[in-house]
Write a protein that binds this DNA or RNA. Structure first.
Lengths: 118, 118
DNA sequence: GTTGAATATTCTAATGCAAGAATATTTCGA
DNA sequence: TCGAAATATTCTTGCATTAGAATATTCAAC
């Protein structure tokens, strides 16, 4: 069993990588499938997949399989520490172009009916 | 120059280790010299020294030399993200015995006039 | 069945810490 | 000058993680 402080360290381990922060920033908006994430982030598929697996392993994300796609979402009942940092991420998203561009690309994908999950 | 998101990643890198969290929890109370930290944490000196150096390198701490002792304190003008997490650390300190014991040992040291910096 | 899309995994290097032991440096006091 | 305390650094070893390339798996559609 994991103590509270061990769990906090787990959370921080997930947050200390820019790639994972970018994923969390997108998932704050709601669940997303892997391919949408991959396109919004403009990162290679194995890289995104491994970052998602890392955060699942640490309990931040859960995934559900819907036919051919895997839908990722933030886990329920998150550590309050993580909740707080996701709020901070919102402020960060307003100030850093990297996060803004991710959100912009994601918005573009969602409105395109030719996309995979739509 | 470091971008805002890079700076946040730096902060999270410092937070993702229990030893460093314990140090930050003690420094929340105010500046401390290395030997007080070492005794309160009950950790070997090189380990504490390296954790302090790590956080200095990432801009979270500053140190001043006073004769034979080095006084460590939280840096001025911290990233708001770090401020927020230091507040979270306060809540954590109420719930996790590790942090409580550190504070208890520190309180014991400070009231003892035989100690090094007093 | 075969193809193709979506996702996961494996492999190989390379990197960044981490701990522990030992040693070096600085400074004060005897 | 010498010894002792406080601090920093070095060295070694090991572990966790990362990227990138390649491959494997799963499933729908044809």
């Amino acid at each position: 069993m994991e103590t509270l402080s061990e769990n906090c360290v787990s959370v921080y381990k997930c947050l200390c990588d820019l790639g994972r922060l970018r994923i969390l920033n997108l998932l704050r908006q709601g669940p997303l499938c892997g391919c949408h994430l991959q396109v919004a982030l403009e990162e290679p598929q194995p890289k995104v997949s491994k970052q998602l697996a890392y955060m699942k392993r640490h309990g931040l994300l859960v995934s559900t399989r819907r036919t051919n796609w895997t839908i990722f979402r933030l886990a329920e009942g998150l550590n309050p520490l993580l909740e707080e940092n996701l709020k901070c991420l919102q402020d960060l998203a307003f100030q850093d172009p990297v996060f803004q561009q991710d959100l912009a690309r994601l918005a573009g994908i969602n409105t395109d009916p030719a996309d995979c999950c739509d």
